[in-house]
């Protein structure tokens, strides 16, 4: 399986899935009209990654703006990771936000609050 890298556009994030290291990174704003087109290929890559053996995956997200369509797809990614976590894979996730931005902190907490895998919402100072 090859690494999966998608360059950012003005309205879709940079995605880097390093297969050997087990790291998935997403950065940038995301507000496409159709986020299914944006994130479905990544969902498929995640399935492919966990297909043959027990794996570890560290996810790092640095996204500040999601439209509702992207929030929905992000939630689908998170649910998928939760399913793999329940099937004994190692999953961890860090979501970064600018220190002091209560709105963002609350949004990410709301998105993640009921997941089973360990996660951190990390404040980043300027």
């Amino acid at each position: 399986m090859k690494n999966y890298i998608v360059e950012a556009t003005k309205y879709t994030p940079y995605i880097e899935f390093d297969i050997a290291k087990g790291n998935l990174k997403m950065e940038g704003d995301t507000y496409p009209e159709n986020s299914y087109d944006t994130f479905k290929p990544l969902l498929d890559k995640i399935d492919e990654y966990f297909l043959d053996s027990i794996k570890s995956l560290n996810v790092e997200i640095n996204i500040e703006f999601l439209n509702t369509s992207s929030s929905k797809m992000m939630r689908e990614i998170i649910s998928k990771l939760d399913e793999y976590f329940e099937a004994d894979h190692n999953i961890s996730l860090k979501w970064y936000y600018p220190d002091g931005d209560i709105d963002l902190q609350e949004s990410w907490e709301m998105l993640l609050e009921d997941v089973l895998f360990p996660y951190e919402i990390v404040a980043v100072e300027d």
Partner: peptide, 14 residues
């Protein structure tokens, strides 16, 4: 947000 899978046209109804 947690209900219904997203439709292929990307509409979340949200």
């Amino acid at each position: 947000l947690r209900k219904h899978p997203i439709s292929e046209d990307g509409s979340a109804g949200l």
